[in-house]
Amino acid sequence: MLDVKHLRKVYSGHGRTVEAIGDLTFHVAAGEFVTVVGPSGCGKTTLLRCIAGLLPATAGEIRVDGRPVSGPPPGLAVVFQEYGRSLFPWLRVADNVALPLRRRKLSTVERRKRVHDALAAVGLHDSLEAFPWQLSGGMQQRVAIARAVAYEPRVLLMDEPFAAVDAQTRADLEDLVRDVWRQLRITMVFVTHDIDEAVYLGQRVVMLSRSPTHVLDELTVDLPDERDQLGTRSDPGFSKLRARVYSQIRAAKAPVDLGKTAS
C-alpha cells in the first residue's frame, strides 16, 4: 500500500546543506496502523511531507497504492500538528470539513450527510456552526480529524497531531483515532515523538534514528486490538514493548555531542 524505498532528503540553501533523511526504507500494508517514532529533530515531519507529496524527495522512491508520489496523491489525507493553522478561520466548522469535498461529485444532501457523520464521529455534532477559533485546541484537532474522515481517504497521515494538547485531551484523542481506524480500516501512518503514544496506538512501531535518518528497528505491537488507556498502559506487555522502543531511541541519541543536535 505505502512503500518508502531508499528515501533521502537533503535541504540546501543559505550556504548550508542539511541531510535530514539519510536512507529510509519501510513498508505499510493496506489497512495497517503504523506509528513512526524517533528522537526530536529526526526528520519525522520531513518524511511525512515527502509521503504527502508536499516536499520532493532528493533520492529514492515513495509509492502510494503502487503509484509513485510526485504530488499530493489522491485518496490521502493529512492531519497536521498545528491544528490552529490548518483550519480555515473564516469558515465555520461544517464548511471546513466540507471544503475538500467540493471537487467530489456529491449531491448537496450527500455532502451534508458526510460532513455531519464525520463531525458526529468525533463528538462535535453540535458545533457545526461554530468558527474554529471559538473551540478549544482539542476540539479544533477533532475538526481536523473529522475533515480527514469525511474525505474518505485510503491513507491517513498524522503528524504529531496531539503534541500541543493537554494530557487528558490527548488520551481522549488517541482513543478517538483508534476508534476511527477500527471503524474505517484505512491505512494509518502516525508520526510522534512520544514512545507511549507510539506503542499504544500502533500495530507496528517504526523507530527512526537521529538525522540523517534511517530505520533503527521495527516492532510489532502484539497487544489486542481492544485497547484502553488504563488497562493497556498497565499491561506488562505494554511496558515491555515500551522499554524496547525506549532503549533503542536512547541508544540512537547517545552519540550526539551537545551543540550538534540535528534540527
Binding site: L54, V78, R85, F88, R102
Partner: peptide
Amino acid sequence: DPVLADTCKAYGIRGADRLRHLVLRSAS
C-alpha cells in the same frame, strides 16, 4: 500561512476554490 497552503495542497483544493477560500480570505 504555509500550513494552510499545505492543507489545500494535500486535500486537492485548487483553482477557483483555492483563490476564493484561501488566497482572497487570507489576504482580506
